[in-house]
Each structure stands twice: as C-alpha cells, then as structure tokens.
Design a protein around this nucleic acid. Structure first.
Lengths: 371, 371
DNA sequence: CTGAAAGCGCTTACAG
DNA sequence: CTGAAAGCGCTTACAG
C-alpha cells in the first residue's frame, strides 16, 4: 500500500477496487455512495495521508475556498509597524474564516501601487476584505473598478450612502458623540479634536461630527483653535497637540480620532508640564492593547473587532454565494480609564491649559511648529 | 472585444489570431515568442483585464506560489488576543513574501487539534512557516511527521541540535545573558527569573540559561526562591511575581521571559507598593510595542522581527527549491528604558523588596497562591 | 517562432 | 449505487 510521491484519487481507486469517480464521491460525502464503499475509501485515504488537490478541485468547481484580506497602509507610516487596531481585526477575521472552513490570504497593499491585486480574477480567492485607513478619495475609483468587474468584496470603514460596494463599520458618529458627552459630563468645556477631519478620511470625519454634535447639544461651539489634523500615528498626534498648544487657546480636554494620536498627544501635553487628566483630559479611539498601558491609562472608544471580523467574513460569504447582504454599523463602547479624569473631584476650580501653562511648561524635544 | 464572464487564454488567442499555446508563452515571457506577437497578446490581455487562472497553472506546474504561516497559540490564552510579538513577525513575513512574489496563507492553529493542516499536501502552499510558543514536547512528534512526509517547513524558535526540521530563532541564551549582565552592571544582586523554564518551552529555557550563566559569571547562584513559572501572558506574569513575593526572599530585580510577563510583574510589584525600578528593576523580552508605554517604560530584549521574517521566508524558499539551507540564530538587542533603573544613582543603599516590604505593601486584587 | 496535443487531478452530469 | 467520459484552463515537450 505504498504509493510513490503524493497519492491521488486514482491511486485510492485502484487500492479500493472502485472507479476514481467513486473515490471522489466517497470523499466528498456524496449521499448515494454505499456505506461500506465509502468507509473503505476513507480508510485508504487516511492511510495514504491523502489530501484532495485543491488546485484540481478548485479548477473544476471554479471556486477557491479562500478569502483575501487586503490591508492598506498609509505610506507615510513606518512600514515595520501596522496600526495595532488592524492587527486585532486581522486576528478576528482569520478566526472567523477558519471557523467557516475558508482559507485566508493576506496581502499588504501600498496605497501608491496598483492594487485590485486580482486575487479573484486569478481564482486565488472568492472574495476580498478591504481593511485600512487611507485617503478615501484616492481609492474610490478603484472601488468602483472592483464593482464594475463584479468582484466580491466588503470594506471595513465608514458606512456612507452612495459608496461603491458594501461597508461594515463602527458607528463612528456615535463613538465621537459618546466620548465627547462623557467629557462634558465630567465638566470639561474647552474640548479639542485631533484627527484628520476631511472628506478623505470619512471615519475620522464622522468621529469629528459626533464630537461637534455633542458640543452643540451642550450649547458649545467647536473651536477651530482647538482642532488639528493628524493621521493615525503617534508622531502625528504629538505634532497636532503641539500645534493646538502653540495657539495658546484654553483647553481642558482632547478627543482624539485614534489611540495612537491620543498617545502622541499625551506625550506632548506632559512634555509641556500639563497633567493628564487634571489639566487636560484625553480620550482615544480604537482601544488598542496599548491604551491600557499608556500613562495615564487611556480612556478610549472600543470597536468590537471580534464581531467586526465575523460580520466581514459572513457578509462577504453572502455576496460570494449571491445572497443579499446589508451594510452594518456596529455600536461603539466607551472604555473609561484614567485619562479622561472620571475619578477626579468636581471640575470648577481645575487649572486648565492656557498660554501661561504652555509657556511655563517644560519643552518637549520634538517641536514641529516653530512659533 | 467583449467576452462574457472572465476571459481565458483561448479568448485572447482568438482575438490575437494565434494559438492558445502562444498566448501562454507570450504572457509568461517565453523568449522564443516574436516581439510583435507578444505585444499584441499583452495588449489584448490588458484590455480584457485578463489574469492567469492560478488553479489551472498551479495544477499544471504542481506549484502554488504560496506559503502558509501556521500560528500556534497556547490554548490557555484568551483567544481574542495574539501575542503582539507574533503580530510583528506576521507583518514582516507578509512583507517578505510579497516582495518575493509569493502569496501568504495564514492559519491559527489550536495546539489541541489536528494540525499539520496539510496545506502542502493539498497543494495550497509550497511550504509552511511555523510560529508560536507552545509546549514543544507536544508537537515534536508532529514536526517529525512533517519531516517524514517531506513537507517543506521552517520553524521560528529555539535552534536546538537534533531537532526535526530547520529552525530560525533569536539567540535566546545571549538575550538572557545580556539582560542579566546589564542588571548586574547596575548593581543588582538578587535577580529573579519569571518564565516557563522547562524542556517544553525551549526559548524560555534558553533565556533562563543565559540568565543563570550571567549570575555565575558574577559568582552568584540562581536562587530558586526568586524564580517562578509563567506562560507568556500578563496574568501569568502577575501571578508568578506574586508567588515570588509571597516567598518573602529578598529581590532587587526580575528578568522576565517575555514582555507580557514583565508587564504583569510590574503590576504585581506596584500592587505591593514596590517601586520599579528603585526597589525592583524589571527587564522584559521581545520589545513589543507596548513595552515603551508600560509604566515605567520597559527595558526589553529586542528580537529583529524584520530580519527574522525575511530569513524565514528566504530559508523556506531555499528548501522549496531544493537548495541547501542553514538554521540561523539572530543576535538580540537590549533596549534600555526606565524599568531597569539604568539612570538611577549608585545602588548600595537601595531599599530592596523583603518580607517586610511585601507585608507592608498594598495588596493587589488577584492572588493565586494563598500562603 | 508557432501550433497541435497531452495531461495536471479533480467533479459531475449522464447512463446504467 | 457505480462507471465512463468530458472538461475546468493552463503549461510544455514535441514537431515543424
């Protein structure tokens, strides 16, 4: 019962004394196969360590049993580090795929390069999961091309009307709203926003709009002096906070569009001698593992990555199978830790960051805006 | 020039007025193809958005152009979080694969379940990369099965003699040595070790041996009272530190077999009112992103994940192509931050953790060993 | 430089 | 319940 090299279904057929077609049926659990036959075939297959050749079966069935994740990274980010939030998503997608019997291909895409990557056209994957914060405008046309080609895909990100393809995302507006309401409830009034609140980053824009909405509920006006643009890196967060501080306007809290931005902001604030949360409260977004190790531990808006991964996979699979599928907005969850100052005494007499505080504070090493 | 559904090479052949074989040759860059012919074929392929069907070409060539990463997780770990160190490895492997024109399949393996996963037997991958800290003894027999089946694979981990297959790893002994020597050079003498220093976890064992070796160089003896077992989780680290503290022996530093263990230890020490690094210095291992956000920032032994990913991929590819390949031990790098107390004044008068300090310290919530 | 043909290892109507 | 046969879309000797 030794077969040189890898065994194939014909080898098994010979050994079992049946046709190759019957071997194939037995292995796939075709109901019409005689029970004794099936068991004999299965046993021989087991002994030979036989595995169906996926290339052959995929070629025949025109399916791949594989999904692909395309991870988009902002090219300005140091390419050795992925945003930790996407690591978490990746983990949950991988698990969801495995549970459903699909393999997962992963690919890091440079936004700059040509990318639809044609996993589906080349029959390497039945569908694509698109992950990443990038400039949305840059790749909208590419999404449209995917739709035009009939490629099956789902996108993680802002759920917008009139958007090509189907998106699954966190309710970013609700997240920005919750973070800001929480700060307001703690007595903060001069609340800033750090993030790239442009059309090109719809997730961040929605978080900003939630922030602005909460302020208006409290009859406050978002102050442009307390806002600065930042992509999702610690350095951008530090620079954005420096910029806001340099403007000298009063500030007692910061809502940050991501945890990396928030961690950068913490460093900048502390570098200026400001205490977090006593002088300036900070709230982040994503609840990456680092958030709880930040000092002080970062209050953050958590996205349910486990549920998100499952939804992305299940939704994509529905699309692949030609079923109806809906975009979904997942509710965010505010994780309250120390950086928002939730445990502090009543706020009225709290010192807040002013030009004075800024000038008297220790200078941090990296200063981008010389003013 | 419209073809219904996906175009295949025969469609192109008709449009170009050549045989399908010529299309295949032109597309693959076969040198014998007439230049004008090739250009015509390429242009038509481009217009049709044609992609070679990988299932067909792989079936024909008996290759897959794909590698697979199998990530093993300790089943006791909360399955929503992967050790951050492996995230970093995954990122670098993904990039290395992409650069070399290979696709990457990823799969999370439960140690408990059947796993060789047969990616190679089923022709889904040309080779496997095995990643993970698990109980080595549990899967040694599986490695042997892979070798027996002629599967191509490389393993990340301890490079041991007589081990099945080929391993690429960090020089764990050198890492443990460097961490401990550093603490000794700062005047620490009562240095403990937290990690699972058994045969089942050879990486940790090697780190332990480096630790013990450094102590002996300094004419000190590793004290079993200052050692405790821990798998690589924060909780295990906290519990291990609690256990050591509960024994009441004097302690002025801890070498931890991973950063997660070290972060757990920090919490336990601080929960007992001990100051890090003044009372007890702590050094971790892996230099995960969180290390620098720990409080105090964690001194840690860094593994060069970028180089590691490249080496894993290149070595596996050599194996796949039937070339010679060698195991490699990468040199570690000690990243000095605050937790080791490098910036502190001379040590002789330093308070150290004693039974007294323990008893008087605040109690942390989680206590595993009631003694 | 190009074409006709075989064949990679399956799956699945079609017959019986 | 089972077999003979076609065919998925390529690649590559073999001829010319």
């Amino acid at each position: 019962m030794v077969v040189k090299g890898k065994a194939n279904s014909l080898d098994i057929a010979h050994l079992a004394g049946v046709s190759q077609a019957t071997v194939s049926r037995a292995l796939r659990g075709h109901p019409a196969v005689n029970r004794a036959t099936r068991e004999r075939v299965m046993e021989i297959a087991r002994q030979l360590n036989y595995q169906v050749d996926k290339n052959a079966s995929n070629l025949r069935t025109q399916q791949s049993g594989t999904l692909a994740v395309l991870l988009f990274e902002d090219p300005t980010v140091d390419d050795s580090s992925i945003n930790p939030f996407f690591h978490s998503m990746l983990g949950s997608i991988t698990r969801a795929c495995a549970q459903r019997g699909y393999d997962l291909l992963i690919s890091f895409q440079q936004l700059s390069r040509d990318w639809h990557a044609d996993y589906e056209d080349s029959h390497k994957a039945d569908g694509l999961i698109l992950l990443g914060y990038g400039d949305y405008r840059e790749y909208r046309s590419r999404l449209e091309a995917l739709v035009a080609q009939g490629t099956h895909f789902v996108r993680w990100g802002a759920v917008l009307a009139g958007q090509p393809g189907l998106s699954i995302g966190c309710d970013n507006h609700a997240g920005g709203l919750a973070a800001t309401r929480h700060l307001l409830s703690l007595g903060r009034r001069r609340i800033g926003f750090l993030g790239h609140a442009s059309q090109g980053a719809p997730e961040f824009l929605e978080r900003y709009q939630g922030y602005a909405c909460a302020l208006r509920e409290a009859e406050l006006t978002p102050d442009p002096l307390l806002q600065a643009e930042a992509i999702s890196t610690e350095q951008a967060g530090r620079e954005a906070a420096e910029l806001v501080l340099a403007r000298g306007a009063r500030l007692d809290a910061l809502v940050c569009a991501s945890d990396l931005i928030a961690i950068g902001a913490l460093r900048a604030l502390q570098g200026h001698g400001l205490r977090v949360p006593e002088d300036v409260a900070v709230v982040g977004y994503d609840d990456i593992p680092m958030a709880q190790y930040a000092h002080p531990a970062l209050t953050s808006v958590q996205q349910d990555t486990r549920r998100a991964g499952e939804l992305l996979v299940d939704t994509l699979l529905r699309l692949v199978h030609g079923e109806e599928a809906q975009p979904v907005k997942l509710p965010p969850l505010l994780m309250v830790r120390q950086s928002c100052g939730a445990g502090l005494p009543a706020p009225p007499t709290r010192r807040s960051a002013t030009v004075t505080a800024l000038r008297s504070g220790a200078r941090s090493g990296t200063r981008r805006t010389p003013r």
